[in-house]
Simulated scan of single mutants.
Amino acid sequence: MEHTVTTLNRPDQDFDIRLRPSRFSDFTGQEKIKERLELFVEAAKARGDVLDHALLSGPPGLGKTTLAYIIADSMESNIKCTSGPVIDKPGDLAGLLTSLERGDVLFIDEIHRMQKTVEEYLYSAMEDFVIDIVIDQGPNARSVRLNIEPFTLIGATTRSGLLSAPMRSRFGLLNRLDYYDAETLKKIVERSARILNVDIEPDGALEIARRSRGTPRIANNLLRRSRDYAQVKADNIITEDVASRALALLDIDDSGLDEMDKRILQTMIEKFGGGPVGISSMAVSVGEEPGTIEEVYEPYLIQEGFLQRTPQGRVVLPRGFGLFGLKPGNTQQELL
């Protein structure tokens, strides 16, 4: 099957592809979603039908792209991949849609970032498999309707709340991926280690899993770094102690928090008394984009009880204060 990628390749893409499961049976975690998708795929194939459009939402690195590829493989279809920001003109979308064959999968990552004018062209494509292209401008303008082959659109988003209601309503299959627990991530780390021919002990795999923020992509990246550390300093064997030392070198603590996580919490405590503080003020204070804080750092901090979103702004919870030996109401300056 042809897998056409229209986005730019990442430097670690070969690594990701090697570790990416190609079948539902190889995909670890997200059991309800996996069972649901597998059933719908089987039913569509049995009818000789095209799978309904699917929306995959959730934080980055949980397997949305991997599931899109597995769906395409299971449907014995080609897949074409792009992302919302890349499609900046209706003509770009028309070119993609008219190149699809019956049953093909079009995967759009970050679909919530698609421009409104482009998004509206998708409505008729998703519902009736037609697109209306406006040719020329002014008095000579005319609309041409193009028929396209029935296809499956799989959209991935880290911020489903930014999707418009008309777009969301056109997806028949809505699936939200959640963070993984440590035991599930341990299985993923052990599978990846086998593929990479890395010698890892069960306790070493669990240590990596515990600090992976509930995210397979992070677990695989930490496995790579632990492999490098073991190669240079530990005879190529990742034990619990080796994994712990490797992750300490990366400034990743026992809770999986990295330097930026702790900077966000510490800045909120020291400069804003623990909050409430708005996302814009927080972003300026830590030198990071608001969108990155909202999509990458906040979900895990909220999930683990370090941070809370309120109508007034972000607030550090007692566990966040405890990370620095503080209690709510006490800032670093007050202790000094």
Rank of each mutant, 00 (worst) to 15 (best):
I200W: 12
P290M: 13
R142I: 00
Y179Q: 04
I252P: 01
K116Q: 13
P11H: 02
I87P: 10
I188C: 08
P150R: 08
R227Y: 11
L196W: 07
A193P: 02
L185M: 12
G274V: 07
E42H: 11
V144D: 05
I218M: 10
K233Q: 12
D235Y: 08
L250E: 15
L153D: 04
G322C: 00
N221R: 13
D181Q: 07
V198E: 12
G63T: 09
A193S: 11
F27Q: 02
L51N: 04
L8A: 13
Q333Y: 09
L93M: 15
E2W: 03
E201V: 05
V118W: 05
P11Q: 02
I252Q: 10
A43D: 14
L249Y: 10
Y179A: 04
P299S: 14
R309H: 02
V189W: 09
S143N: 05
S169T: 05
L106T: 06
T239C: 11
M1C: 01
Y179L: 14
S22F: 00
L96R: 04
P290T: 12
L173R: 06
F107Y: 15
G329C: 03
T331Q: 02
A283R: 11
D49S: 14
D16Q: 15
S244D: 14
R314H: 07
E149K: 12
D104R: 04
P150D: 07
L146V: 12
L336V: 08
I108F: 08
V134R: 08
I302E: 15
I208Q: 10
A165F: 06
S74F: 04
K64F: 08
G274W: 10
D203M: 05
Q231H: 10
D228G: 07
L100T: 05
E294N: 13
F306C: 00
D92W: 01
T157R: 14
V105H: 04
D254T: 11
L153N: 03
D235W: 04
S74V: 01
G63P: 10
Y123E: 00
L55E: 10
R245A: 12
I108P: 15
P139L: 12
L19A: 14
S255C: 02
